[in-house]
Nucleic acid binder design. Sequence first.
DNA 1: CTAAAAGTCTACTAAAATGGTAGGGAATAT
DNA 2: ATATTCCCTACCATTTTAGTAGACTTTTAG
Lengths: 139, 139
Amino acid sequence: MLSKKTQYAFHALTYLAENKDKGPVLISEISQERQISLKFLENILLELKKAGVLGSKKGKGGGYYLIKPPEEVKLAKVIRMLDGPIALLPCVSLNYYEKCENCQEEICGLNHVMAEVRDNTLKVLENKTLADVLRSSAS
Amino acid sequence: MLSKKTQYAFHALTYLAENKDKGPVLISEISQERQISLKFLENILLELKKAGVLGSKKGKGGGYYLIKPPEEVKLAKVIRMLDGPIALLPCVSLNYYEKCENCQEEICGLNHVMAEVRDNTLKVLENKTLADVLRSSAS
DNA sequence: CTAAAAGTCTACTAAAATGGTAGGGAATAT
DNA sequence: ATATTCCCTACCATTTTAGTAGACTTTTAG
């Protein structure tokens, strides 16, 4: 399951996407509109900024804004930034590979199946973007 | 990611599948062969028994054994038993559905995508079984 | 009947992850 | 100069994860 952090990130990002013409948006506005704890959201937006998804501006008239158009923000990237690996086993993770302790990969049958799961998952998450997730797109 | 518990469960189940002709297998044997903490493994096997996947026999000559042929043990079921939901959001989980707090499902674009991810994942995990994961099948 | 073998059960614990909070600091606009 | 707004470090409570301890029950063999 996605952590609250990642779920909140998606809420915030879609809010920013829906309001991208209004210039920088206050953390507090997103927090209110999407019912997310202000201080927690601060951390999340900061992470998204450091990861290169958001830009920010300080002082009056400041706030956060999307740095790229929604069509270019892949869902997979957002998940990886905040939750880490998407794969179900470390030994089949593309971005966070780690060797499994208890099995030799050559003869372990599980990793083949889990690699297949990973590919099927990424088929969606690498091709869908923020634009596919906007509220307005549902209407 | 799958928890250690579930990973160990798969190790144990494949071991039992590979040795299913030998009758009941000792916990201690599985523990040694697959390098899993004995006491932790005890808990796991007990859960698997309660969930109807394994049978057991006490006393000398006892141990655990598969109750169904490996071809009938779906990977999805094992994961759900030990780790819970497979979906990435509670509101698109088939077996552990919960309403999302922060979004109205009708207008939230995220759950459509996540339902698609879920379906793609289950396409694999509901159709692959223990038999697809045996070590011997790799040779 | 008894002893050994094996799974069963309850409870406990340490460490890590999760979700969230506090408060001051730095940059910027007016 | 000052109000505004994001930035940063640190902290905290709760839950989950991974594992351990030890007593108890069932079964088999002799």
